[in-house]
């Protein structure tokens, strides 16, 4: 499966995406977590340290006229990039981030191209779980076009719903994903679910409850799977994983 999490900043994309990736990996499938946020939040949810090491510049060389500005250097293929530069996470998830902006502003462009060229050519054995920056900019510019299925994370607030309505316009894009699921996050009661389905004019596909244990874990830098491994948040994301797996049956010939 190839999914990407979208939504307004602070809606909980990274927290859900990182947990989703680890629970999916526990089914025994190879999972590549993709983070195109220059201020990445996904490592916290995956349970690894945030580091400041972008994919090195010499992984790419200047591309041909009319093609991408940078392409993978001769002798380097997407599998090499994953092997060498995707961090190893708990449950066997590999995490590929395009280089954050804590330090390497001048070189981030090449790291971004290395990231997108790797994603474009990735072996289909990988299940892709992507996390985008908040808002509409990257999504509207096609940064989630690897995803066959978009998981739209929405909290029951006016601003989050407003952003979600704009993001649903991706269904009109030439690179539109096959399907969207609406993931209601920080839900306190039935009225929250109704608020979301009414405003988006579509049903809510998954409900993730507001969870004090996760908020506390966040303050201490603990991933949900470490802060509250059997709690309501993890259970809800597990249900979501099962539902998406059912939609995209695993091709066992392609799995290791």
């Amino acid at each position: 499966m190839k999914v990407a999490f979208l939504g307004k900043g602070g809606s909980g994309k990274s927290t859900i995406a990182g947990t989703f990736a680890r629970l999916l990996a526990r089914t025994g499938q190879p999972v590549l977590a993709l983070d195109s946020d220059p201020l990445p939040g996904m490592p916290y949810a995956l349970g690894i340290e945030v580091d400041d090491s972008p994919i090195p510049d010499d992984v790419v060389v200047e591309g041909p006229d009319g093609g991408p500005r940078w392409v993978l250097a001769p002798g380097i293929d997407p599998a090499d990039v994953i092997e060498n530069y995707a961090a190893v996470c708990p449950d066997g998830v590999r995490y590929l981030q395009f280089g954050n902006t804590f330090g390497h502003i001048s070189t981030i462009q090449r790291a971004q191209f290395a990231w997108s060229e790797t994603v474009a050519g990735v072996d289909p054995k990988w299940h892709l779980v992507g996390d985008l920056p908040g808002g509409t900019r990257q999504a509207m510019f096609g940064w989630a076009k690897y995803a066959e299925h978009v998981l739209l994370v929405v909290e029951p607030t006016v601003k989050s719903l407003h952003s979600a309505r704009r993001l649903l316009r991706l269904s009109e894009a030439e690179f539109a994903p096959k399907a969207f699921s609406v993931v209601a996050n920080k839900v306190q009661d039935k009225a929250d679910i109704d608020r979301i389905s009414d405003r988006l004019e579509r049903p809510v596909d998954a409900v993730v409850p507001l969870s004090p244990e996760i908020l506390t874990g966040d303050r201490g830098g603990l991933a949900p799977l470490d802060a509250d491994p059997n709690g309501a948040f993890v259970k809800a994301v597990g249900t979501l994983v099962n539902e998406v797996v059912a939609m995209y049956p695993v091709d066992t010939k392609g799995a290791k």
Binding site: M140, F141, R169
Partner: peptide
């Protein structure tokens, strides 16, 4: 603002 999806 960005209204219409557009690759690039």
């Amino acid at each position: 603002r960005i209204e219409n999806p557009d690759p690039g």
